[in-house]
């Protein structure tokens, strides 16, 4: 039988603050209380605080992302679920500053990075990293795995004082990273096309965590993998979050995967967050009709 979901959902931090969620499917009296309450439910401020983020593509009538606000607590996994085209990937790209938002603030570790440019932005880049859906596109096909793994360190690593992946020598660093994502060290010299999809995705995860970001945005990290690798990658991600104290924004159209991974879930539709709740309140009667529709599908 399946293992209890609560086991995979608690974290170092959440285990102390969130009530044990043994009773699946029983809605709490006030499901929106958590949304209004401070995320970290304690002294710790949220590691990422997004307010009023809006992005409109040139020529489009409606914004792809419309006034999105949320907070991500330290050590938390926040799920974001929605259909394709709902704006969840655009939101991710705006957070990573790959695309520019038209309005809104992105408070990352107490600093609004939305207005920063160029040299001013660079030191903040280390704190937030992303894993994309398709690892084949996310790795430069002409770079060996070790070179891809080194890329972030070369630019951002020197300024940071890395503890988990301290750089002693090139080889040791690469080996340590591969080990962290449970890959054999001999993959270091290979090219991406020589790896399986699951292995490639593990490499992009290793690369993302190499410079020890605080926030990791996971944009459909398992959507292009086969079923067995999907489960293994989700397990790996949960393990990394606990051991490294990472915070995740987990984006997916797969409500079951989001529910398994996250403590809190946001539902996005047509560029807006329409529902936001604690994971254990998913089956509550008070859910937004669209959320209920999504549930009925799974």
């Amino acid at each position: 039988m399946s293992r209890p979901i609560s086991e995979s959902r608690d974290s170092l931090f959440a285990a102390q603050t969130l009530a044990p969620d043994a009773q699946q499917g029983v809605g709490t009296a006030d499901a929106y209380a958590a949304e209004r309450a401070p995320v970290s439910a304690g002294a710790l401020p949220p590691v990422l605080l997004v307010d009023g983020l809006t992005r409109t593509y040139a020529g489009a009538q409606l914004p792809a992302v419309r006034s999105v606000s949320f907070a991500l607590g330290r050590g938390e996994c926040l799920g974001l679920v929605g259909e394709s085209g709902c704006g969840k990937s655009t939101l991710a790209r705006c957070l990573l500053r790959i695309e520019e938002a038209d309005a809104g603030s992105i408070m990352l570790g107490g600093q609004d990075i939305a207005p920063l440019r160029g040299r001013k932005l660079r030191p903040h880049r280390r704190k937030i990293q992303i894993v994309f859906q398709n690892p084949a596109a996310a790795l430069n096909p002409r770079l060996r795995i070790e070179d891809s793994l080194l890329d972030p360190y070369l630019q951002l690593g020197r300024e940071a004082k890395l503890s988990h992946f301290a750089y002693t020598s090139r080889d040791a660093y690469v080996r340590r990273l591969l080990e962290a994502v449970e890959l054999p060290a001999e993959l270091a010299g290979r090219y991406p096309h020589e790896l399986s999809g699951g292995q490639r995705q593990r490499v992009t995860i290793a690369r993302a965590i190499s410079i020890e970001p605080e926030v990791l945005v996971l944009d459909e990290p398992t959507a292009s993998l086969d079923v067995i690798s999907q489960g293994a990658v989700l397990d790996l991600l949960t393990g990394l979050r606990r051991s490294l104290g990472l915070s995740y924004l987990f984006i997916s159209h797969d409500l079951a995967a989001v529910h398994r991974m996250s403590q809190r879930i946001m539902v996005m539709r047509s560029g807006e967050i329409v529902d936001q709740f604690e994971a254990e309140d998913l089956f509550s009667e008070e859910r937004h009709p669209y959320t209920q529709e999504l549930i009925s599908i799974f």
């Binding site: 079923v227 489960g231 529910h259």
Partner: peptide, 15 residues
């Protein structure tokens, strides 16, 4: 068994 367990389900009921 492995194939079934790999895929997460919204868990209220049996597989």
């Amino acid at each position: 068994r492995r194939l079934i367990e790999a895929a997460p389900v919204l868990g209220r009921s049996l597989r």
